[in-house]
Design a protein around this nucleic acid. Sequence first.
DNA 1: CGGTTACCCTGGATGC
DNA 2: TGCATCCAGGGTAACC
Length: 289
Amino acid sequence: MPELPEVETMVRGLRPVLEGATVRGTEVIDPFLLRDTTAEAIDLAFAGAPISEVRRRGKWVLVLSKRGPVLVIEPRMTGGFRIVEHDRPDHIRFRFLIDRPPGGVSFCDTRRLGRIRLFPDFGTASAKIAESLAEDALEIDCGLLSSRLSRTGRPIKPALMDQKIVAGIGNIYADEILYEARVHPERPASKLKKKDFEAIHAAIGRVLKVAIEAEGSSFDVDYRTVMGGEGGFLAINAMYGHEGEPCPACGTPVKKVRIAGLANRPTHYCPVCQKAPGQKSGRVIPKPK
DNA sequence: CGGTTACCCTGGATGC
DNA sequence: TGCATCCAGGGTAACC
């Protein structure tokens, strides 16, 4: 679930609870999520010292101990945080316990796809993260994004979701961004024009900002804020989850398709506003035989 | 090497 | 009701 707006919402919820609080201890309820570390190492790194900062990079959360170590948590599909008094009855995988109310935060993850890694200091964590993640979607400039995208022949949608091209965009927001930019999701990234890149770059900023203001996207029971509340973006968006409903701009029913390079993840777009590769007008003209 | 799929997990929804 | 199948916001190893 969580893409950049959901993770940003989590981090904003965690900051007032964790920053400045001293860690009483940590609890690893499900060691399966740990990678290259142990429950003992995490507790040794964090217990007894204050948390200095909670950061976000792409879709990942960084918790920094004033003592130096950094915990990097990847929520992936179903991971999320709750302050302890609002946490889920099931699926709690990890906890920070702190010395002041509300007592701590839990990391919950139904599908157990989330990952938790420990680094000795911020420099080491940053270097390791930089091997997997490009610049954050809220910070990348248009020139860098354009040059990265133009170097791949893949369809623009999977390219936008490639965390090594730009970090933070997932399946929901890729659809909204490409609709806002009026770019067809299957157009090869390398064939896009300068104005397309500019439209995409601007749309990234607008869509993510609106989504953060709405506190992200919730459906089913997976993503919630740290207080257990739902995000409101899917009530105001145009494409994702709106198959068959009219496009807000032209009224054409929103199409839902599967495209290459995305395994089985669905793609939603307006077949009129977002021109197909080679399509010149809003109407598809059949090739003469 | 670049692009694509398979797989890691769980549980809710849907279908027979 | 019971059981099988499909589906889901992500990331990456393995494959072609």
